[in-house]
């Protein structure tokens, strides 16, 4: 894993952008800059990140960006990659940077199409588990029990497992990451940039505004999601599935922190009953059982 001291000093995120205090997306964008540097070209559909850029004539993000409609991030990135190649810019690394809604709901057909065509792009889903910039509406990636403005009493369905659907597309590289573990995310991005074909990274990004927690705790909540076993870090590379070293200890249930430590920091889970927490705990166990088996199958 890369050492913090060895990370480049250059900033690809401009201070004074429009993000809320404690924003996980600007953290993630900084890590994209650190990992890919000058080569990154972003494609951003409607999302918080299109707001973060701020007001013309200034941009809060120090990378070239093509802003595009909600449904078209992967399609536009495919076209942009082809255009850059024709112009001889072979080093350019096209990165589609979309939210959970732009990936799992509205952008899903474009994503699935680009994955099936094995387009040479990196697709990053910044998953803050709801439509945050329009006012915290539920998405298909909102977890069970979470309050949003469209699920007042808590969502009744579980989170859609988008990275698993990408594994089902048999693309060259699928990984999960978290803003709580930046060096792991940067390593995965650098690895992805050396692979030709479709690369997908799912970045877990706790949002203080939508999840109702203190903005100082963004990284802490992100780390707790991994340490409680709720968010599993893994890599699927050329047909091989491997749980990442940071998540591996939590295969053993006794090593995991209690799930309530993660839940009680967040206002969106405040109304949860004991029975709801039991549903989430069961979900964590089932996820681990499934992914441990998947590791055996794809070893």
């Amino acid at each position: 894993m890369v050492r913090i001291q060895d990370l480049p000093r250059k900033n690809f995120l401009m201070p004074g952008n429009a993000a809320c205090p404690g924003c996980p997306e600007t953290m993630g964008l900084r890590y994209v800059g650190m990992a890919l540097g000058e080569n990154a070209v972003l494609v951003i559909p409607a999302s918080c990140s299109s707001v973060i850029q701020g007001i013309y004539p200034r941009s809060g993000i120090g990378m070239p960006i093509l802003n595009i409609v909600f449904a078209a991030a992967a399609a536009a990135a495919s076209g942009l990659k082809a255009a850059l190649e024709i112009r001889g810019l072979k080093d350019a690394q096209v990165v589609a940077w979309a939210g959970d809604g732009g990936t799992g709901d509205i952008g899903f057909q474009a994503l699935s199409g680009a994955a099936e065509r094995n387009e040479d792009i990196i697709y990053i889903c910044v998953d803050n588990e709801a439509y945050m910039n329009t006012g915290i509406q539920r998405s298909s990636l909102t977890p069970y029990g979470a309050w949003t403005t469209t699920t007042w009493t808590g969502k009744k369905e579980h989170k859609k497992d988008v990275p698993l659907t990408l594994i089902a597309h048999r693309v060259p590289y699928v990984a999960t990451a978290s803003v709580g573990f930046p060096t792991d995310f940067i390593d995965k991005l650098r690895k992805a940039s050396k692979i030709r074909g479709f690369k997908y990274i799912h970045l877990h990004a706790p949002c203080p505004v939508g999840w109702r927690f203190d903005p100082a705790k963004t990284a802490e909540v992100a780390k707790l999601a991994v340490q409680t076993g709720l968010w599993i870090l893994y890599e699927y590379e050329n047909g091989k599935f491997r749980i990442s070293p940071l998540s591996r200890p939590y295969r053993d249930k006794s090593k995991r922190k209690p799930l309530v430590e993660y839940i009680r920091l967040q206002g969106r889970f405040r109304h949860l009953k004991k029975s709801d927490i039991a549903v989430l705990e069961k979900y964590v166990d089932e996820m681990w059982e499934f992914y441990t088996k998947l590791e055996e199958i794809y070893k």
């Binding site: 001291q5 201070p15 952008n17 993000a19 404690g22 963004t218």
Partner: peptide
């Protein structure tokens, strides 16, 4: 730092860019 307002100096010491720091406390 989500804002890039922690300034990293040559010797890896740090200071804060108060002009833009939003005070999130991370």
């Amino acid at each position: 730092c989500p804002e890039a307002t922690i300034i990293r100096h040559e010797d890896n010491s740090v200071s804060v860019d108060y002009e833009y720091c939003k005070g999130c406390g991370i």
